[in-house]
Amino acid sequence: MGSSDPEAKRRVVIVAYDDAQILDVACPSGALEVANSHGASPPYAIELATVSGQGARTSSGIVLAGARRLASVTGRIDTILVVGGNGTEAAAKDVRMLTQVRRLVARSRRIASVCTGAFVLAAAGLLDGRRATTHWGYGDMLATVFPDVAVDLAPLYVRDGNVYTSAGVTSALDLTLALIEDDHGPTLAREVARELVTYLHRPADQAQISMFLSAPPPGDRLVRDLLGYIAARVAEDLSPPVLAARVGVSTRHLTRLFATHLGTTPARAVRTARTEAAVHLVRGSELSLAAIARRCGFRSAENLRQAFLDHYGMTGDRIRRMPDMPQPLRPEARRTPGA
């Protein structure tokens, strides 16, 4: 994970520690490596650094080797990125870690954190007076421990000046794609996304918590599995008979299960999934509403327009112009869709 000529490249130093989340390291380093393979110019030189220089044992038990000692890192740095994980609390209290992070930040063009890595930046005083995000499960703690940080848990990642913070785990990929786009333009970022087989480069203001995570997951495994199936295949035939046949129950029994565990019908759950998939495409692409409707399983752009009105109380054109992601209407305010 090094470079023989780092000064000729965009030097990215990933700061890790014991009990770090391995995906927080793998998502950024993997995406940057793919960007290099697709002709990033100048290319990225990726370095892993720890306080001891002895590598880092991740929370999964896998040891990341090839690290260098933070104190030995000198020279100009393009981006310093601090990862998150179960070891964040200890890292944020490690005087050696905080001293070295402050030193390296002074040498860096850009500062970033993934997930709870924001706690390390905050402990180093680097987020004071700034807007920042972290994993949704740790936002209240970040705001309480560091009251000078303006914590915003809505977006996937936040940019405040040259400081970037991102939400939990896989949002590291969204953040890295955004950094690649800033450095090399949208064409390369899209090529990297395609290479990584990620469905969509999600915009920063996409909510961290989707419709399937905002409430406790349904207790019935069959319903949970079907929700995942629906979310991954919004363009396919998801009629109640097709869904019922997939899990080997009658349509009537499927309807009872959805009413019991979700408080809705299979058809309405499918419509909600399609509408939320569509709003992400409206926000994150330049596709026409007709094209988005086809990709998300709606019969026409007019059907999609009606779904947006029912779910968000506004049209797709207005959603596209908004500075932030729209919030769904409360259930009692939504119009019941026609047959």
Score class of each variant (00 low, 15 high):
residue 244 A to D: 02
residue 232 A to H: 10
residue 229 Y to K: 07
residue 230 I to G: 06
residue 234 V to G: 01
residue 243 L to I: 07
residue 237 D to G: 04
residue 252 R to Q: 15
residue 241 P to T: 08
residue 238 L to T: 02
residue 236 E to G: 03
residue 241 P to M: 12
residue 243 L to Q: 00
residue 254 L to R: 01
residue 236 E to Y: 06
residue 228 G to C: 06
residue 253 H to C: 03
residue 242 V to R: 11
residue 256 R to H: 12
residue 245 A to N: 10
residue 254 L to I: 05
residue 233 R to E: 11
residue 257 L to M: 11
residue 236 E to H: 03
residue 254 L to D: 00
residue 227 L to T: 02
residue 251 T to R: 05
residue 245 A to H: 04
residue 240 P to H: 10
residue 246 R to V: 12
residue 231 A to F: 11
residue 247 V to H: 00
residue 255 T to V: 11
residue 252 R to W: 10
residue 244 A to F: 00
residue 255 T to C: 07
residue 252 R to I: 15
residue 243 L to M: 04
residue 236 E to A: 13
residue 242 V to S: 14
residue 231 A to P: 11
residue 255 T to G: 12
residue 241 P to G: 11
residue 227 L to Q: 13
residue 251 T to V: 03
residue 246 R to C: 13
residue 234 V to W: 06
residue 247 V to Q: 00
residue 246 R to K: 15
residue 233 R to C: 15
residue 242 V to N: 03
residue 253 H to R: 11
residue 237 D to E: 12
residue 257 L to G: 02
residue 239 S to V: 05
residue 242 V to I: 13
residue 227 L to V: 05
residue 235 A to D: 15
residue 247 V to N: 00
residue 244 A to R: 00
residue 248 G to I: 10
residue 250 S to M: 04
residue 245 A to R: 09
residue 246 R to W: 05
residue 251 T to E: 09
residue 228 G to K: 02
residue 233 R to G: 09
residue 231 A to V: 13
residue 232 A to P: 11
residue 254 L to V: 04
residue 230 I to M: 05
residue 229 Y to M: 06
residue 230 I to P: 07
residue 236 E to R: 07
residue 245 A to D: 08
residue 229 Y to C: 14
residue 251 T to W: 02
residue 253 H to Q: 10
residue 253 H to I: 08
residue 228 G to I: 04
residue 229 Y to D: 08
residue 241 P to N: 12
residue 243 L to T: 01
residue 256 R to K: 15
residue 230 I to V: 14
residue 228 G to A: 15
residue 244 A to N: 02
residue 255 T to Y: 07
residue 242 V to G: 08
residue 230 I to H: 07
residue 249 V to G: 08
residue 235 A to R: 05
residue 243 L to W: 01
residue 254 L to F: 05
residue 231 A to R: 10
residue 253 H to K: 09
residue 246 R to L: 15
residue 243 L to V: 03
residue 235 A to N: 07
residue 232 A to D: 15
residue 238 L to M: 12
residue 229 Y to Q: 09
residue 227 L to H: 08
residue 248 G to K: 05
residue 236 E to P: 00
residue 233 R to S: 14
residue 235 A to Y: 05
residue 234 V to T: 13
residue 240 P to I: 06
residue 256 R to P: 15
residue 237 D to K: 06
residue 251 T to P: 01
residue 228 G to V: 06
residue 239 S to C: 11
residue 256 R to T: 12
residue 255 T to W: 07
residue 254 L to H: 00
residue 240 P to S: 15
residue 232 A to N: 09
residue 244 A to Y: 01
residue 236 E to S: 03
residue 249 V to R: 12
residue 245 A to I: 04
residue 237 D to V: 02
residue 246 R to M: 13
residue 241 P to A: 13
residue 227 L to I: 05
residue 231 A to I: 10
residue 229 Y to F: 15
residue 256 R to C: 13
residue 239 S to Y: 06
residue 238 L to R: 06
residue 228 G to T: 05
residue 257 L to F: 01
residue 233 R to L: 12
residue 235 A to S: 08
residue 227 L to P: 02
residue 233 R to M: 13
residue 235 A to H: 05
residue 256 R to A: 12
